[in-house]
Nucleic acid binder design. Structure first.
Lengths: 221, 221
DNA sequence: TAGATTGTTAATCGATTAACAATC
DNA sequence: TAGATTGTTAATCGATTAACAATC
């Protein structure tokens, strides 16, 4: 399995979400690159190229077999393997993620949550046991967990990330508003909503005070 | 104010977050592009170019004035204007966003939440009143709200988005796992966590079953 | 002044799009 | 067969990085 670039991975996910809708499970179960492109606002050549990189071959004059495409994407994104994860920090966001039922269809299972609040420890959230922080490292080691979902506050995020790495974690899905540092073999995916906010805020500010056109005509020197 | 590209906006946000840390508020309050680049793992030329596009001039042999940089970014991202928003759907994620106290520092204020659950309507979440869905459109119109944060379930997301657009909303920050369609003058920013998941899942699958090297040496024909 | 840092132009890199022969 | 769709090569586009004279 070749290593794929981030942009390719994200497009593969979009194809997958689109094609796994029930409507495509029915015959004739084939679809052309042009149809996918139209629906997702992507260039059809791009679709064929992406499919090519994961070894998919289309059928001339017909298109692609929907099931085959889905299977290839599942394989390349690893959805066909059970993936266990721990969640660190059971605040509102952590609770939201624990309650989200959609992860299982991607092979992802949150098997334990950890929190420093002794009132929460011993309890359950969305069927997942909440354990004390000191149990984190041994738990991860014992079960060979490789993925951690970090939903702890900013102040403790880096320290927790370090502990996760020392416990053997290989990927951190970071929802804390903090840029984490980790060794090169550990993948960190940051989900800062502040990046989205920058795009939104700029768009709205644009509308309020548009460019006063310093380079347009109508203002002779 | 010129319209800026998404990648530039996201970098501006990263600069801003880095520079607004308290440590940079103290004298000498200047910083070089190389220092910023080092901290954020960005090319120094990129930093200077980004600053140039928002009209910032550095001082030879010294660098940039931290306060001036922050002010310019605040202006360009619109953080200096009060921005009111409504939130639609008070599930776990909606509650997490309502409880997040960091938005105010970007000028963003969630002034009302809407939900279809009559048990929630009339109550308060994190100091924000929860109102019935039917009150949404008149509320938005009356107060001239331009931003909606959509944290409703997948099934109703597009329908709600349509209603928001008809009420006059100009930007939708979409946390529902749905690709929304909206008129071109309405900005939609999708925060699908599934995109992040694709990157994480692929990384972990890579480690489990690395490329069996069909093109590498050691396998003579 | 000498030297560090900027602003800007040119070169590189990678990703997207266009073109089109090959294919079913 | 005729025609639609693929796979792939070439062209374009945009973003990143390198180089360096101008500046304080």
């Amino acid at each position: 399995m070749a290593k794929l670039r981030r942009v390719v991975l994200e497009r593969l996910m979009r194809y997958y979400r689109f094609l796994s809708e029930s409507s495509f499970k029915k015959p004739p179960q084939t679809i052309t690159s042009a149809q996918i492109a139209e629906a997702l606002d992507i260039d059809p050549t791009q679709v064929r190229k992406d499919f090519g990189t994961i070894g998919l071959l289309g059928i001339g004059r017909v298109g692609f077999d929907v099931c085959e495409v889905c299977r290839a994407i599942r394989f390349n994104l690893g959805f066909d393997q059970r993936q266990e994860a721990v969640l660190i920090g059971t605040g509102h966001l952590g609770t939201a993620l624990l309650a989200y039922s959609g992860f299982a269809s991607y092979g992802l299972h949150i098997v334990a949550a950890f929190d420093s609040d002794s009132d929460k420890v011993g309890g359950e959230i969305a069927g997942c046991a909440v354990k004390p922080m000191r149990a984190m490292k041994p738990y991860i080691k014992r079960r060979g967990i490789r993925l951690a979902i970090l939903t702890a506050p900013h102040e403790v995020a880096q320290k927790l990330a370090d502990r996760l790495v020392s416990a053997g974690i290989k990927a951190i899905w970071n929802f804390a508003p903090t840029r984490l540092t980790a060794p090169p073999d550990v993948l960190v995916r940051d989900e800062h909503i502040s990046l989205g906010l920058s795009v939104i805020a700029h768009h709205l500010a644009q509308a309020t005070r548009p460019d006063r056109g310093q380079d347009t005509e109508g203002r002779a020197p």
